[in-house]
């Protein structure tokens, strides 16, 4: 038997614009998992998703969705994925009922009763113009529409941004339910890292169009730490631990990896666990630790 098919594989994806480029982005999302794609606004999250889906032409790289090579098997693959985009949506004149009728003709596996279940659960009115919906209702409608053809892979761009905490939690609950099926997978881009802290299995962190990290979340959280120290202590730090540095008048903060090993060998150091948000801030606002420290 060949190895298990991944829900999404992106290899060496490159896309250049003037002023911004996506460089050599690779990620692998196994079935049964949720991957959070994090990064600041403009880091390339949407570009990565759009290039993977063929909405924009990639310069190079390979994408396969549910084992199907893109763009050769584009139609077959797209019939089995559900996508919620940050900015593309249904026309404001359309009602949820009409949207259901439209999608029924587009997706061969459309399940109307499932769609209605979702609408009911989200308390979305069946016959009202979607243009009159709040942002949260609109997002829930998009999710209902994206799940009702029973996709195997759900891709959500900026899934929870701009939504209140109650709606965000409702959406996270739906995603956790969806992922109970081992054949399913979710790719979720967000800059709200606390949501991903709750549900993601894998984290891929994009910064300035490049993948900075792509690892299992638990592994990442147990490895990364923040070391508070003076510049002198920083210089004495053994190689291979320090990743990024933020300096202030009070001393240095260093993002370190293998924090347990470091505290074991240097019991005197104060190392706190780092959250995803900390890591983001270290990469975006901090600077590289001087090369001799990395050797």
């Amino acid at each position: 038997m060949s190895q298990a098919v991944n829900a999404l594989e992106i290899h060496h994806l490159t896309k250049g614009y003037s002023g911004f480029s996506l460089e050599d982005v690779s990620l692998t999302l196994p079935k049964g998992c949720i991957m959070g794609l994090i990064g600041e606004n403009g880091a390339g999250k949407t570009t990565t998703i759009k290039a993977a889906l063929g909405l924009i032409a990639k310069d190079s790289g390979d994408v396969s969705i549910l084992g199907m090579e893109m763009p050769a098997n584009e139609q077959a693959a797209k019939a089995q994925i559900g996508v919620v985009l940050d900015d593309g949506h249904f026309h404001e004149n359309l009602t949820p009922k009409e949207i259901g009728k439209i999608l029924k003709t587009i997706y061969p596996t459309w399940d109307d009763s499932l769609y209605q279940q979702y609408l009911k659960r989200f308390s979305l009115p069946f016959d009202q113009r979607s243009g009159s919906f709040s942002k949260g209702m609109g997002r829930k409608l998009a999710i209902a529409a994206a799940l009702a053809h029973r996709p195997k892979l759900l891709i959500m761009d900026e899934a929870t941004s701009g939504l209140d905490p109650v709606v965000r939690e409702e959406i996270l609950d739906i995603l956790l339910e969806f992922i109970e099926d081992e054949e399913h997978a979710v790719l979720l881009s967000s800059h709200i890292t606390s949501d991903l802290d709750k549900i993601a299995d894998y984290i891929t962190f994009l910064h300035e169009g490049k993948v900075v990290l792509s690892r299992e979340k638990d592994d990442l959280l147990s490895s990364m730490g923040i070391l508070k120290c003076s510049e002198k202590e920083l210089k004495k730090l053994p190689a291979g631990f320090a990743l990024r540095l933020r300096q202030s008048q009070f001393g240095c903060e260093v993002l370190v990896q293998n924090r347990r090993a470091l505290s074991f060998s240097h019991p005197g150091l104060t190392i706190d666990p780092a959250t995803l948000e900390d890591m983001m801030l270290f990469y975006i606002r901090g600077k590289q630790v001087s090369p001799e420290k990395q050797l």
């Binding site: 063929g54 797209k78 949506h89 249904f90 026309h91 404001e92 587009i106 997706y107």
Partner: peptide, 18 residues
């Protein structure tokens, strides 16, 4: 122009529509 306002084209291209 309605399609444009809703950014429908990119949304439609995530569906099995060529």
């Amino acid at each position: 122009s309605y399609d444009h306002m809703a950014k429908w084209d990119s949304f439609a291209m995530t569906m099995p529509v060529t």
